[in-house]
């Protein structure tokens, strides 16, 4: 799939000029957000923000909330990474299926089937449930 990769990586001339449109849009959005903050600062009577304790449903917090949070689904993140890498290949693959024919489909879905076996194993090990 070299030609597909090339068209993904190297934008043609027209696409480069489009970048200007995209960057202008990003600039407009940033300007709009800064403008909203400025507008709010100009409009509101209480300039200084009120310093409050974080909401702890009526009582005072005893500790800083920012801690080493135990993300119990860490096993799923590893599984996700394996699939996510695969997805990146699937984008250019989608473009060339018609040209490459049945081999491309068989190879891709064979590979996905292997990954799905892994998912089933992870599921049976109980890693998709953590509470």
């Amino acid at each position: 799939m070299p030609f597909a990769a090339q068209s993904l990586l190297f934008p043609s001339e027209g696409e480069e000029s489009d970048m200007v449109a995209l960057l202008s849009m990003a600039a407009l959005i940033v300007a709009g957000i800064v403008g909203l903050y400025a507008l709010s600062a100009a409009l509101r009577t209480a300039r200084e923000p009120a310093v409050v304790l974080p909401y702890e449903s009526g009582l005072l917090p005893q500790q800083h909330a920012v801690s080493r949070y135990h993300a119990r689904w860490y096993a799923v993140t590893v599984l996700f990474l394996a699939f996510d890498m695969e997805m990146i290949f699937m984008y250019p693959w989608a473009v060339v299926v018609a040209d490459m024919g049945a081999t491309a489909v068989v190879e891709m879905f064979g590979f996905l089937a292997v990954l799905l076996v892994g998912v089933t194993y992870v599921w049976r090990e109980g890693a998709l449930r953590w509470t």
């Binding site: 702890e56 449903s57 917090p61 500790q63 801690s67």
Partner: peptide
């Protein structure tokens, strides 16, 4: 983390 849920 020590947390209180409630009273409100």
């Amino acid at each position: 983390l020590k947390v209180a849920l409630g009273p409100v």
